[in-house]
Structures are given as C-alpha cells and as structure tokens.
C-alpha cells in the first residue's frame, strides 16, 4: 500500500493491529462489478444478507454498492429474486 513501515517503538503492545481493514481497499480484485437497477429493486435486502464483503450499503431507502471493497463475486446478482443486479465487466 506504499506506506511507511513503523519502527518497533511505534507499535502497540502485544502486536495489536492498529488500523481497521476499512483502510484496505479490496475493490481492485474485481473483474465484474454489480450494478443495481433501482427500478427493479424491491429492497428485500437479500443481497445485503449474503454479501461476504459488507459491500452492499442500505441507507433505509435504497441499496448501493461500495466499490471500495466489493470483490465482484456475483453472489448478490445470483441471489437477487427480481434480477435487479447485473454483473458488468470492469
């Protein structure tokens, strides 16, 4: 990730991690991206339930995809009962 590696003096005790993985973007693993058709979407949230990467975002109104982390597995598109998600080549 191109960041400066710390010296031993700057690390937490007990080798505890000091960053959350949200700082590590896994979106570049993707070859297909899920695209949501908001017209078709019934907000059943099955995509949210099944997403292994916590990349479906529900704001209480509509769903969206967080492409910072989505690895493009396609589970959301496969499981969508109304076919509102399409996998599109990057």
């Amino acid at each position: 990730m191109g960041e400066t590696l710390r010296s031993w003096k700057e690390l937490p005790l007990s080798a505890l991690p000091f960053k959350l993985s949200t700082e590590f973007k896994t979106g570049d693993w993707r070859t297909f991206r899920p695209v949501v058709d908001q017209e078709k979407c019934t907000r059943c949230l099955l995509c949210w339930v099944y997403c292994p990467d916590m990349s479906i975002v529900w704001d209480g109104q509509r769903i969206s995809v967080n492409y910072d982390y989505c690895k493009g597995c396609g589970i959301c598109a496969r499981e969508c009962p109304v076919k509102a998600i399409e996998m599109v080549k990057e």
């Binding site: 949200t22 590590f24 973007k25 896994t26 997403c51 292994p52 916590m54 529900w58 704001d59 589970i75």
Partner: peptide, 28 residues
Amino acid sequence: IRELAKRPPKLLPGHRLCAGCAAPIIAK
C-alpha cells in the same frame, strides 16, 4: 433485517477472504 442493516458492521469490509467465501457471511 432492514433495521439491522443500518447498523455499523461488527465484521468490517477490507478483509482478504476470497471473493465468494461463505465464512464472512457466517461470521457477520
């Protein structure tokens, strides 16, 4: 689920399990 999905996740994205892995679904 519509309420639960609004909460901040306890298992965060940015993990490096393979695409399509079932383990993070189970954990979350």
